[in-house]
Design a protein around this nucleic acid. Structure first.
Lengths: 152, 152
DNA sequence: TGGATACGTAGAATTTTTCTCAGGAGCAAG
DNA sequence: CTTGCTCCTGAGAAAAATTCTACGTATCCA
């Protein structure tokens, strides 16, 4: 992994190492804010901008991706294997879901996309499973107070 | 349509009407900012907060949805029929794509999601087609300067 | 028409993200 | 070793996106 960081022309700094490790060890897709708060005790001098800079650098090196699945802060994912995401409508929690129903190769889907968006060059298909996570379903199971205007 | 607005317990105001009409007439999924700028000439007294309030109200009434498909401002979609979205990695443009490969009923997918996220109550599956739109492919076709860290 | 309620306006406040600039550290060549 | 170059960090400010608050007003239903 260190090799992969350096192979990308990135310098290996303590901040990058800490952020990469924290991200790789957390399947819950933390936000930049969460990463910053978790790492601050260990690296009190690190600034917030460094978290963003580092995440951008890691993303450019294809070591993580940023996810904009729900309103609010972006979440970051160090899992670079193809997979999908389950997103809770209420709390915004994101869980990885393996691509278990994956059958269609891109080449099959592309014509369909191009019929609607002429000239669109398809790179990837992403699936988002919308719903309510177990812990949100447990709290206030009635009342339907889900946030309005959620992405479909 | 007016009936649908009122049926949702919403009052029909000129601002809501203008925003709903603008949204329904634009397949390009405008942002709140774009809506505000387009409507300001016609309604110079309208404030930015009104755009957000109105979009929230429309979304709560299931007359539109907000889309968080890429970093930056949320985009809004008045097309409430089931469909998917093609998103340009470079310019963020969003195009509707009919659900042409839709085969799997939710009940079939749910077990797969639950295997990864125990207790997740699946409501909808959304597909995002990532790629580069025709006009972005035309500009700077080489150079690979796409923004780093884009969502997968 | 009239009254209750919900809405719009404006500005400020919050949150999220990016930018700028001044050091500082690592690396290559001399 | 040291000089020079580049890339990185830190800090704050700035920009962008969204939400909140208060008060006057418009809208709806009867």
């Amino acid at each position: 992994m260190l090799a992969r960081v350096r192979a990308s022309g990135l310098k290996l700094t303590p901040q990058r190492l800490a952020i990469a490790r924290e991200l790789a060890g957390d399947p819950a897709h933390p936000t930049a804010q969460e990463l910053f708060e978790r790492l601050r005790p260990a690296m009190p001098t690190m600034s917030f901008a460094t978290v963003y800079n580092t995440l951008d650098a890691l993303a450019a090196a294809r070591l993580c991706v940023s996810l904009s699945l729900s309103p609010g802060a972006a979440r970051f994912d160090a899992n670079m294997a193809p997979h999908n995401h389950a997103v809770c409508d209420r709390c915004g929690l994101v869980r990885d879901v393996p691509s278990c129903t994956n059958g269609e190769p891109l080449a099959e889907i592309a014509p369909c996309v191009n019929a609607a968006a002429t000239g669109f060059s398809l790179r990837a298909v992403e699936r988002i499973y919308r719903g309510v996570c177990a812990s949100c379903a447990a709290d206030v199971p009635t009342s339907g107070r889900s946030r309005a205007g959620k992405p479909r």
